[in-house]
Write a protein that binds this DNA or RNA. Structure first.
Lengths: 288, 288
DNA sequence: CTATATCGTTTAATTAATTTAAACGATGGA
DNA sequence: TCCATCGTTTAAATTAATTAAACGATATAG
């Protein structure tokens, strides 16, 4: 028969702090009769005594000591988890985005939002793909793409065309051999299986290309940038890498760009009722 | 406001195993209304949703997942501790003794007791000193000494005289220099501060000795035997070390022995009402 | 496109559990 | 010896949980 008196057990933890049931009752705003009943019931279902009854109060039995230790710990764990989850849901707004976007675009602007909305607990949740959204409590995601997502609300944040980037070696190879020849030898770094960005770019630039299998999928944009720097391949990147361009680390390999790509706010229809969500959307649109 | 709905939370853990409240209700022998109420109440006190209500059942929310994980763990810890403590008290008999006595004397004989009393869960609890008894649930302790303990019931198990033992070097030193001279240089290994065994022995053998400060206190008899083997000193040991004597590892340094020492059962008056305790005492007396 | 089955929720009544107040027995100290 | 102070017990009062039934929502079958 399974144990189910967890509320009584929680009372036991409280009562054990005192040296007598009377003391405990007074502090807990209950009568000593009530607490005596609780302990009695608990001891009966457990099958062993928790307290030794003395003339002037109670003391824990050895088993009581053991159980107290365990129960105290376990209850504390649950209580702190609840506290944490409560905190998250109290006036919280969680925005999912890549660490790339967070560090290169949002971070510098975020202080202003937090200052004008000090009551909103903002959380930035790093995500890689769309499926992360349902696993966590994320109200809004910020995604790069061409705005084609289904069953969700999509708001364009700003255009951010993408163009092929490579390191110095890649750049020089393009200069030497020309675009088509050089690209035939490059490994194409992609963000996912399904992304059609490279295909779109090839179509736009007017170069024929077969199905390429020597592509490397690197979902995280920061990692992808680093891979390009390390010469592992070429990737489609956007204006947010301007720092690396200016520093001469990264090079633009072609003038042709995917101009209809950009950053979008993606959120479900239902969260539009959340005033925090709308406050954030209204604010971020002024930043685009 | 502190969380106190641990019984509801425990229900939540049960319910989360199923895909619908109806399923859970049927398996738990409750109505779906009851479980719906529990979950509703729990969610209200928590301040966030645990389940997402679908048309054909329920699924955990992200916060529900998190809380479930934690609660499952913590409850399991408590439940397993309770199971353990219950097992101890169900027909359990715990005997405290040194590992020395347990391995050298009791172990070989114990099988018989367990065969004739298969319903008694016997536990051997290793102890070093008297104070261990009150910390744990020990009904009987087996101690070596001269039977002089107060406020407890004492029953002599068997006489087991003690005499000085040393390793081969010590033995040869006694042969060469004589008892008094050799002992003046030995470190005396003792079991505790308070033990007067060495003083008693010196008195009995008729050798004068001042207060010796170069004594080493090693409470555990097994460790003490090892210390003697390693030549760290000489110790008073009893017949239970006959193996080492026969193997030529340990040597008896004197014929003079503390003949009134032996092994005793020590227990409190109240445990005499416990039939398991009496069964053990009756049995072990036949083994003495 | 409608009928139906299957969810969870809600309501009000029933049932069960907890709490209380007061009396009680035990015990140690004044 | 009396008294104060424990925890326990009892029965009544109070509070809480459970039930049964009706309900609204929604996907599926026909």
């Amino acid at each position: 028969m399974a144990f189910r008196n967890f509320d009584d057990l929680r009372s036991f933890v409280d009562i054990a702090q005192f040296n007598s049931i009377s003391d405990a009752a007074e502090k807990m705003n209950l009568t000593k009769g009530a607490l005596s009943h609780r302990i009695k019931r608990l001891e009966e279902t457990l099958g062993f005594m928790l307290f030794k009854r003395n003339v002037r109060g109670i003391t824990l039995t050895p088993k009581g000591e053991d159980l107290l230790m365990q129960a105290k710990n376990s209850f504390a764990q649950i209580e702190s988890q609840i506290f944490h989850l409560k905190e998250i849901s109290d006036n919280a707004l969680t925005i999912g985005m890549s660490t790339y976007f967070a560090s290169r675009w949002l971070s510098p602007r975020l202080m202003e939002f937090m200052n004008t909305n000090p009551n909103i607990r903002l959380r930035i949740e790093p995500i890689l793909d769309m499926s992360d959204k349902i696993e966590k409590d994320i109200q809004i995601t910020i995604r790069w793409g061409n705005g084609q997502w289904r069953n969700v609300e999509v708001t364009k944040l700003f255009s951010c065309p993408a163009w092929p980037t490579g390191n110095k070696d890649a750049y020089e190879k393009v200069q030497r051999e020309g675009l088509e020849s050089a690209f035939a030898k490059f490994t194409l770094l992609r963000d996912s299986d399904k992304s059609s960005a490279w295909t779109n770019w090839y179509n736009k630039v007017g170069v024929q290309h077969g199905t390429r299998y020597d592509t490397l999928i690197i979902p995280d944009p920061n990692v992808r940038v680093q891979a390009v720097l390390d010469g592992q391949g070429v990737a489609l990147n956007d204006d947010l890498i301007s720092n690396e361009i200016e520093a001469g680390q990264l090079f633009r390999l072609s003038d042709c760009e995917l101009s209809d790509y950009g950053y979008f706010l993606v959120y479900s229809e239902e969260v539009q009722n959340d005033p925090n969500v709308m406050a954030f959307i209204d604010w971020i649109k002024t930043q685009g």
